[in-house]
């Protein structure tokens, strides 16, 4: 049913390129985000479960 509705996506060849781009962007962004956090902030977050 769903395949009948959508039948054919135009330009399916671009799919792998798009997925690679998304993948690369997401990961680079995440790594930049993580490693620019301040240590004290990380320590505070890590300490949350130890609060009563």
């Amino acid at each position: 049913m769903i395949r009948n509705v959508l039948e054919n996506i135009g330009g399916i060849e671009i799919y792998p390129i798009i997925s690679l781009t998304i993948f690369f962007t997401v990961f680079s962004t995440m790594l930049v985000y993580v490693f620019t956090r301040k240590k004290k902030q990380m320590d505070k977050m890590a300490g949350l479960p130890l609060e009563p």
Binding site: R37, M45, A46, P49
Partner: peptide, 17 residues
């Protein structure tokens, strides 16, 4: 685990990654 070990997780940065 931090609760039982009574210490914070080894690396919070790593937990985000």
């Amino acid at each position: 685990l931090p609760k039982a070990a009574q210490r914070p997780v080894f690396s919070y940065r790593l937990s985000i990654v």
